[in-house]
């Protein structure tokens, strides 16, 4: 036996990116704008969706709900009479901490794409892994709640760098916290100056109109074709 070196130079996530492109093409054909919606656990993704999904003017929104286990979030959203499809990750290798392109592909048949203008894919709560895996989205939105601290953009730069919009949630709690909002926004500037930000509270409804308008805008805007 002898050893031979074979040069490869291939991005190891190419397979995922290829499937993500296929998903994107299917979504584009169906005329559905796709949002990859991410955050740490408990930041308020589902609450912020509950506030808007049923009443984005002129836009039919559906949700693909990714969870390690159970359908608690999907049940909450289904009660608003919005099309919701549940995708559990625990059937795969020990319960994945994120959705990848293949998992989303496996859910395509179950999605009522013809009845939708927009699909929000609520990713598994996690600031690390979901940032690595494209799923076929047009835009990425993340929620960063003020109780998480102002240092998070510096600790999870990959996530903050890949998001088009950062929803700063739970701002009704600001009077009770030592959280420095200016510092947080400055930290976003450090890692991703172009990221849009909206200050919101799913609890009081503050900023929710702006969040809904943002969704309405991207549903209507022609999307760039990714390279």
């Amino acid at each position: 036996m002898h050893r031979t070196k074979v040069r490869i130079v291939e991005e190891a996530l190419d397979a995922n990116n290829t499937i993500a492109r296929a998903n994107r093409e299917d979504f584009d054909r169906a005329g559905v704008t796709v949002v990859n919606f991410m955050s740490a656990p408990g930041a308020g993704k589902t609450s912020l969706l509950e506030r808007v999904v049923g009443n984005v003017p002129g836009v039919r929104v559906g949700v693909l709900e990714g969870d390690v286990q159970g359908s608690l979030d999907a049940d909450r959203l289904a009660s608003l009479h919005v099309p919701v499809t549940q995708l559990n990750t625990d059937a795969s290798f020990g319960g994945e901490c994120h959705l990848d392109a293949n998992m989303v592909r496996s859910a395509l048949d179950a999605l009522p794409l013809r009845e939708l203008d927009m699909l929000v894919i609520e990713n598994v709560g996690n600031l690390v892994c979901p940032a690595e895996f494209k799923v076929g989205e047009d835009v990425r939105v993340m929620v960063a709640s003020v109780t998480e601290g102002e240092d998070k953009p510096l600790k999870y730069p990959l996530m903050f760098r890949t998001c088009d919009l950062v929803l700063v949630n739970k701002i009704d709690l600001l009077p009770y916290l030592d959280y420095d909002l200016d510092r947080f926004l400055y930290n976003i500037d450090q890692v991703h100056p172009d990221a849009e930000r909206l200050l919101v509270s799913a609890r009081t409804g503050e900023g929710i109109e702006a969040w809904r308008d943002w969704l309405a805008d991207i549903a209507c805007a022609p999307q760039e074709i990714p390279a």
């Binding site: 002898h2 074979v6 040069r7 490869i8 130079v9 991005e11």
Partner: peptide, 11 residues
Amino acid sequence: EFEVESIEIEE
């Protein structure tokens, strides 16, 4: 980067 640069195989 997250790429497989090369592999060494036994022949």
